[in-house]
Amino acid sequence: MSITRRNAAQWLAALPGACAAQQLIGEAPGRITPVAELVNSYEAEAMAGRVLHPERFAEIAAGSRAPFDRITFRPRLMANSLDLDLSVELFGVKLFAPIIAGPVADLSRFHAGGEAEWLKGAEAAKTHALLAAGGGTFPVACYSGDWAGFDKVRAASKAPVLMKGILRAEDAKAAVERGASGIVVSNYRSGVAELPGVAATISVLPAIADAVGGRIPILIDGGFARGTDVLKALALGARAVLVVRPLLWGLAAYGAPGVQQVLELMQSELARAMVMSGKPNVAAIGRDTVRLHKR
């Protein structure tokens, strides 16, 4: 094969495809899309990739979609949704939607405005936020660590205490027995998050929900980036979902407006998915809303 100029040009043009340099359809490289134009949270991820140092970005890159891809819906027809309602009640708080901004340490790593921008964006999207250091706009304490530590925190805390980091049914039961107000199914814990082959939270949720049997509310985090992901968690027994990474993408690229946009996108996606699966409110969602697949 002889190399013609045209050949070489084509090869060059194919390079970026091979490098996956252009993640957004039709966006010029380097351009930061106006925040209102983002159509899903993954676009915010691509934008974060453009503003963050690669190493910083690697810490918050998207997780695998495979666990969500093994769950499909069983959409039911003709459910009047004019009074569509996503709200849920949790520890005496009425949530606008079953989505909570999850805890992250040191938000200033991603945006100079850090925590202030995070809270501002969440509030603009009518979303409560749990902060790592405590405080935040959701009145619960989230504990992650050993049981002795949990007992101490619970004894000392006036607010409801959630046991975070549950991945097994027996631990969920133990949390109920030790008086946890709720649990957070999560694999984001030091040592575990980096563990190769650790189970996806959405995959272990059904067994945990069975073990808890509705005695305390279950929250979950881990890779939730689309409204349909949230609907799946609700169907499998979670009361609400903690979202972190997609909001960090929004925060890094845009500050508060990015956090707000990503939250609103996920709320809209959830709302549309609920409508089209025939579930006009959260109470109507159940196990039979989804179908689990082996592969």
Partner: peptide, 18 residues
């Protein structure tokens, strides 16, 4: 739309009895 989630309302009224 009546809902605060920006879901267009045109097709939300469906019911079997129709």
């Amino acid at each position: 739309p009546r809902n605060p989630y920006r879901v267009p309302e045109d097709r939300l009224f469906y019911e079997w009895k129709l």
